[in-house]
């Protein structure tokens, strides 16, 4: 049985984007920081298996790679929170200030990674800025007579496991419920005795960790470079915007939408309208724009609290033009 290539790609990218975008939504929703450094967590997650396999000269087992990526991403996100966001929030920084700070953080970590890579390249005598890790996965496995791409299977399993655990964690555990409480109503949560600082830290760890797992998932298919996370950030943002930066499940749907647009819609457009395949990113951007226009995520990102009537704005502009004529 031959599954169409486009369908496989769509599934694969859905997995990747959801692993990367859901934690972005989670971190924004809990901490109200739009984290531009998110892409770097993905990159680090992709590099950890590279470091292990190249550094020790072995091929890593996927379980170890996943766990170490998660740990690295979680630590990085917690450090970001403790060293940058938390002190700034205590100083009553505005959302814009926090965004700028996250941009500073992003640039710092990214170039620190570049610097580290150039040192490691010298000492290990290998190419590291465009590479892939040596992970111990067979290329395909036979299952009841069907050849299945083992990497894809692993990714799908990973998505299922990660999101099942995340849902269980948020719904069933005390800490998870505290995270949701803080996201929905920080003041009230504070009153009920939830430690904001501790809860936020855990939320950051989870979102950094999952994003890093997304990076790992990327690394088993494609080449890894220090730009990996940044190259995906547009799509990741688009998924999160579809989720209104609030809803984790809609963000997941956003991942499905974006990956279908980039892998299925573009093929259709190419076949019937001659649109070039390189126009993929525009579809994502277009979807992002449409989301903001049609369903402006009121409230979540600040801004005007009600829907400022653009139609009124347009008709007034037109009226003014008529008056001038």
């Amino acid at each position: 049985m031959e599954v169409p290539r486009e369908l496989i790609n769509t599934t694969w990218y859905t997995c990747l984007y959801s692993l990367m975008a859901v934690p972005l939504t989670l971190s924004y929703r809990t901490s109200k920081v739009l984290n531009f450094a998110h892409g770097i967590y993905i990159t680090i997650g992709a590099y950890i298996p590279v470091f292990i396999s190249r550094g020790l000269g072995i091929s890593v087992s996927p379980i170890i790679a996943i766990l170490s990526s998660f740990t690295a991403g979680a630590i990085l996100a917690m450090v970001s929170h403790l060293a940058v966001f938390s002190p700034l929030i205590k100083r009553k920084a505005t959302p814009v200030t926090l965004m700028i700070a996250s941009m500073g953080l992003w640039i710092f970590i990214k170039y620190a990674l570049y610097a580290a890579l150039s040192i490691l390249q010298r000492s290990w005598m290998t190419q590291l800025t465009y590479t892939n890790p040596n992970i111990d996965i067979p290329s395909s496995i036979s299952f009841m007579g069907i050849e299945i791409n083992a990497r894809l299977l692993l990714t799908i399993l990973l998505v299922i496991v990660v999101f099942t655990l995340l849902t269980l964690f948020l719904m069933k555990t005390k800490t998870g419920m505290a995270i949701r409480a803080i996201a929905d109503n920080p003041e009230l949560a504070q009153l009920t005795g939830i430690s904001r600082e501790k809860t936020l830290l855990i939320a950051w760890a989870i979102s950094g960790g999952i994003a890093a797992i997304g990076g790992f998932a990327w690394s088993i298919f494609a080449y890894v470079s220090p730009e990996t996370g940044d190259n995906l950030i547009l799509q990741v943002f688009a998924c999160s915007v579809i989720g209104g930066l609030v809803s984790l499940s809609i963000t997941f749907i956003g991942a499905i939408i974006i990956s279908s647009a980039e892998n299925l819609l573009i093929i259709l457009l190419n076949r019937y309208f001659g649109v070039e395949l390189s126009f993929r990113p525009f579809l994502s951007f277009l979807i992002l724009l449409l989301t903001i226009l049609i369903r402006p995520p009121a409230g979540a990102g600040g801004g005007l609290p009600y829907r400022y009537k653009i139609t009124g704005y347009i008709s007034r502009l037109l009226r003014r033009r008529e008056e001038n004529v």
Partner: peptide, 22 residues
């Protein structure tokens, strides 16, 4: 500016950043 008239700074940031990359 048009699509971002009604949304907050986070969405404005995302939109314009994406615009630049795109």
């Amino acid at each position: 500016s048009f699509p971002t008239l009604r949304v907050g700074p986070a969405f404005l940031g995302i939109t314009i950043l994406s615009f630049g990359e795109m």
